[in-house]
């Protein structure tokens, strides 16, 4: 992957133009937040000198001014963000593969997220963006950023408190799998609960999950627990070669991935620490390594088709 991607003259010109917009947004943001801060301080200062009413009037006016400024710039910031994604990330995608396209406002729907069965928990709050689609030879694929959360509530002396927990913050990749299958096969990271369930399934009848698939690859079994409603089909999908490849793919990620094979597709969830494909507001757009992290994620996703050998179409599925 070329790290000097921004040297591309067309992209360079867009970045220069966006940099002007970015500076305006960042300075206006500072102005708006500054006004709110000054407003709050003036209320406190006036109140301490006994002029609360005057403080509230002048301070309130300054705060309202700050809010109006921030509100106005928010629209411009949205346009700036959209242009960055469409024009800069879009160009980066075309640089990797001309078939790749981005739709910043689209994503992987919550219905599809649930349908994929990648995670056992149902989300209470769901957000998705930056849908990227492509096709390499015979394999169509798409991926998008997803943030799915569930909530827990605790009773405190101040009332009910809601806590939000991540189910997934990262990217879901969906690819057309190269073999026909009818059942459902799910590969989840091995945690304590999954290991215990697998042990009961193996040793005590009527307890635990009977759909656990015991595979021969010890390294694979160390990281994952496999569930399927068809033991033979699970092994037909998870050949020794594919298990090796999934292991290699997993090693390249800092958190264990989850996979599922449903309805002709392969779903892979990659937990990631940050929100990708976002333009900076308070840092310059013109630094040479601006897109390095985004580009490395994009090429990683693009390489999955080759890594997992999804283009080998020697079976009856064309």
């Amino acid at each position: 992957m070329p790290t000097n991607f921004t040297i591309n003259p067309a992209v360079e010109a867009i970045l220069v133009e966006l940099e002007v917009q970015r500076k305006h947004i960042s300075s206006t943001n500072i102005k708006g937040w500054g006004a709110i801060l000054v407003g709050v301080i003036s209320i406190f200062v006036a109140a301490s000198f006994g002029g609360l009413i005057i403080g509230l009037i002048t301070g309130g006016a300054i705060i309202i001014y700050g809010i109006v400024v921030l509100n106005k710039i928010a629209k411009e910031a949205a346009i700036y963000k959209r242009r960055f994604k469409n024009d800069v990330i879009g160009a980066a995608l075309r640089n990797i593969d001309p078939n790749l396209t981005i739709n910043p406002n689209d994503g992987i729907s919550e219905t599809e997220f649930r349908f994929s069965q990648l995670f056992p928990t149902t989300p209470d709050r769901y957000f998705t963006e930056d849908l990227i689609t492509g096709k390499i030879d015979k394999t169509s694929f798409y991926f998008a950023e997803v943030h799915a959360e569930y909530k827990t509530e605790t009773q405190t002396k101040n009332g009910k408190q809601t806590h939000w927990h991540d189910i997934l913050k990262g990217i879901i990749f969906v690819g057309d799998f190269n073999k026909h299958f009818n059942g459902i096969t799910i590969i989840r990271p091995k945690d304590f609960g999954a290991s215990l369930g697998a042990w009961f399934a193996k040793n005590v009848y009527s307890f635990g999950d009977k759909n656990v698939v015991e595979l021969e690859n010890d390294e694979f079994n160390k990281n994952f627990v496999v569930y399927s409603n068809d033991q033979i089909e699970a092994r037909y999908i998870l050949t020794p070669a594919l298990m090796e490849r999934i292991g290699v793919l997993n090693q390249r990620c800092s958190n264990t991935i989850s996979l599922s094979f449903i309805n002709a597709n392969m779903y892979i969830a990659f937990p990631l620490a940050k929100n990708y494909f976002e333009p900076p507001i308070y840092k310059t757009l013109l630094k040479p390594n601006l897109l390095d992290e985004d580009l490395s994620v994009l090429s990683f996703m693009h390489d999955i088709v080759h890594e997992l050998d999804l283009n080998t179409r020697i079976w009856t599925k064309a």
């Binding site: 073999k179 026909h180 033979i232 092994r235 037909y236 050949t239 079976w315």
Partner: peptide, 10 residues
Amino acid sequence: TESEEQIAAA
């Protein structure tokens, strides 16, 4: 080819 892999899986 498919049947070969299905037998291997079985």
